[in-house]
């Protein structure tokens, strides 16, 4: 340390009369401009991120999702038995060796549930992501451009929202087939209008702020203003929307599989399994239906736990 002045701890806060109010800017002081409580809110938000990681709901949600992600990634290699091999003749109730029991042709239900995680974890987030992307695009255009464009698109969106989900899904499958991409597209198409409405509302709140006027005054294009100026400021609701939608997507994908779209027999997909087995509930054979159904429920709940935590942080609980 040759120059003692270089590390003078006071060099940051020395005030010169000429520099009037802009002298000091330590993080502590940053929160202290204008109204006391408002200024504090900024710091509180950062603190909230630290708090969310200590939230039990968030931890439980992340843990369950991680369990299913591990199952989806490793699939057969961590399953106790082969998912497609027949081990017993006919049903066996849960017991040592087969903790979830076996199904009507003797396959291990636990292994099938583990292996079946892959389909839903691939399709649901993809569908949700696609739906959110399209929804953001549509909502941005509706909210920012406004006028008759908004009027026309809003009516279309409302009309779409009025259609029953299952009916739309069945129609799509009937006309387009039951491939994975059809399922993804159906999920995306179902979510686009919902997301668009949320984004539109957020954009309308931003559209009239002066920074947008200022961008117009320097000659920015509408595209630039929408996606470079406004988009970063509405990311909060979009992220919330994405997490919430992934939860719903799991549900929709499972429903579609139950109705016959997506993976076909003998796939161990959860919705497929429920669909294949639910008839035998009345005969007292509950385990072939309950375990895959519980898997669906646990994933939906876990994603929703995460979504709730994210929402309370981003929107201030």
């Amino acid at each position: 340390m040759s120059d003692p002045n270089a590390t003078n701890p006071h060099s940051e806060v020395v005030s010169t009369p000429a520099a009037d109010e802009l002298v000091s800017l330590t993080p502590a002081e940053i929160g202290m401009s204008g109204a006391v409580i408002l200024g504090e809110r900024q710091q509180a938000r950062r603190e909230n991120w630290r708090l969310i990681r200590r939230r039990p709901a968030f931890i439980v949600g992340v843990f369950i999702v991680l369990v299913w992600v591990v199952c989806a990634v490793f699939g057969q290699s961590i399953a106790p038995h082969h998912a497609f091999d027949e081990y017993t003749t006919g049903h066996l109730s849960p017991r040592a060796g087969y903790p979830f029991g076996t199904d009507e042709i003797g396959r291990d239900v636990l292994s099938r549930v583990i292996v079946g995680a892959r389909d839903v974890l691939k399709v649901a987030p993809l569908g949700a992501l696609l739906g959110v992307l399209l929804g953001v695009l549509l909502g941005m255009v509706m909210g920012y451009l406004g006028g008759w464009i908004d009027l026309v698109l809003s009516r279309i969106v409302e009309a779409f929202l009025a259609l029953p989900v299952v009916l739309v899904a069945l129609l799509a499958i009937a006309t387009l087939g039951s491939g994975t991409w059809v399922v993804i597209s159906v999920v995306a198409a179902l979510f686009t209008p919902i997301v668009a409405r949320t984004v539109r509302a957020a954009v309308i709140a931003e559209r009239d702020l002066d920074y947008v006027t200022s961008a117009k005054l320097r000659g920015e294009s509408s595209g630039f203003i929408m996606f470079r100026e406004i988009l970063p400021n509405v990311m909060g609701p979009i992220i919330v929307e994405l997490t919430v939608r992934i939860g719903y997507a799991v549900f929709v994908v499972a429903t579609l599989a139950f109705l016959g779209a997506g993976p076909q027999a003998p796939s161990p997909d959860w919705g497929r399994q429920v669909s294949d087995a639910y008839n035998s509930i009345s005969a007292g054979i509950w385990w072939t239906t309950v375990f895959p159904a519980a898997a669906i429920a646990s994933l939906v709940i876990a994603v929703n736990l995460i979504a709730d935590s994210v929402q309370s942080v981003l929107e201030g609980s």
């Binding site: 109010e21 002298v23 002081e29 202290m32």
Partner: peptide, 12 residues
């Protein structure tokens, strides 16, 4: 005339 500096943080 101006007043140099800024108001201290609450709880300061």
């Amino acid at each position: 005339a101006t007043i140099p500096g800024i108001l201290p943080l609450i709880g300061g």
